[in-house]
Amino acid sequence: MSDPIVAVEHLTLAYPGDRGRPAVSVLTDVSLNMARGGALTLVGPSGSGKSTLLRCLNRLEEPTAGTVRFDGRDVRSLDPRELRRRAALVMQTPVLFEGTVRDNLWLRPAGTPGDFSEARLSEVLIEVGLEPLFLDRDAATLSGGEKQRVTIARALLRDPQALLLDEPTSALDPPNAALVVETISRAREARRLSIVAVTHQPELVRHLGGSLLFLVRGRVEAYERLDGGASAIGDARLQAFLAGESPRAVPAKP
């Protein structure tokens, strides 16, 4: 890949042990890269380090060793605040702050570039499938699916190059999950966004395409491209996942 948006090389992450106990290894020697406008899905059992890996990409986590490059630059050479604007994170449980939807969309550090005009806010709300009338709604009164779409709108307003999605649909019921999947796919096409997602939802993976990375206990166990369709997938566990089986139930390689 000549010009990847995200490139991870030999990333290892361990947390220091609590009170003299040995360090806790979370990720070991993970490498991956993703083309500009591409998609990558991280799958694996709970506790396999998927979310931690995702959070290394916008430097919410600090690797112990290895490098993460975003748009050609080592993330350690970027201002983390600027990096996080360009690689916007959407979390599993949407966090909206006190106030209206407008207050939440406006929420940004002083000096954040971009258009935060009323017209633009409405435009982005429409992009995520919500009426502009929502601007005046109290954020606390929204449904889970609406909240998640507002957090996606909040991310899109900053014109990111990449969206990092941490199980964006797992806290939602199926109809709302489907709406969020649709929202993400549409935004991706319209904006040529690069997407890295942690998900248990095969539906989202099928929409995104790209590559699939299977993590078990912090190590890459399989890493395959989806271009040829599900049938071209060689790894049985990835096939099972795409067929709708929960990856939690899939045993790790002995």
Binding site: N58, L60, R81, E82, R84, R85, A88, L89, M91, T93, V95, F97, L107, R108, P109, T112, T151, R154, R158
Partner: peptide, 16 residues
């Protein structure tokens, strides 16, 4: 913690 990390992910400083 999710609130704090949402703020960080939105580009706020740790202190903010």
């Amino acid at each position: 913690a999710p609130e704090v990390e949402t703020m960080l992910a939105l580009g706020f400083s740790g202190r903010e």
